[in-house]
Design a protein around this nucleic acid. Structure first.
Lengths: 108, 108
DNA sequence: GGACAGTACCATGCAATGCGCAGTACCGCG
DNA sequence: CGCGGTACTGCGCATTGCATGGTACTGTCC
């Protein structure tokens, strides 16, 4: 099964949702996404998404230089990110409903 | 709203589902998809998808040279296409469930 | 009869995005 | 001191939907 294409356009929302529930750093977000069912996400994809969302103003970031281990770049959601999340949530829900109907053969 | 990325990886299944319910030619499949809710699909995307699925052996095709109007290239689903559809249907359903949970904050 | 809209199909090039792979850096353990 | 685990980054690739523009045929309106 190749769910990789399904992720396109959805990883953003997924990451936003995870970060909204609690601030997190890249490596941690990857683990939480995998634990949540998206077991095949590549770490590079998540890091890239985080950076993209940050550039878009949806996330803030603060580095925590850990004394025991590599530093951690935490990300938190901004009001703008929250708005984006709400919007995308709706888009996804609507889209999923449409697809479910289509796949059931109810073309209308 | 930009649902264009959501289509990635899903257009295949959608097209298969539509063709499964009844043979159709490109222009017609576009209309049926739009009527089904995917109002923003570009025609070129559908034609491309049909050709791709045909190359993959999921569809057969037969041209009907109409006496009144341009010819129509009809597509029908093959056993292989039907298998692909069933499989993808499951993948989609599973994926959608996972996403719905994640978006609800139920990371587990 | 010529312009135009509608039907029907196709090719080309682009943009977005997830991934693989490689690299850097730091830690504790045996 | 090497190794595995943690944590982040950069580069180049593959997939795939889209915009644009082109071909071709038909009927309608002026």
């Amino acid at each position: 099964m190749d769910a990789t294409q399904l992720l396109k356009g959805v990883l953003d929302v997924a990451v936003l949702a995870v970060v909204e529930s609690e601030d997190g750093y890249g490596y941690d977000v990857v683990r939480r996404l995998r634990a949540g069912g998206l077991e095949e996400v590549g770490d590079a994809s998540v890091y890239g998404t985080l950076r993209r969302l940050y550039s878009a103003g949806a996330l803030t970031s603060y580095v925590v230089p850990s004394e025991e281990g590599p530093h951690r770049k935490y990300y938190g959601i901004t009001p703008q990110g929250r708005a984006m999340l709400e919007n995308q949530r709706k888009v996804w829900t609507e889209f999923a409903r449409t697809m479910n109907q289509l796949l059931r053969g109810e073309a209308a």
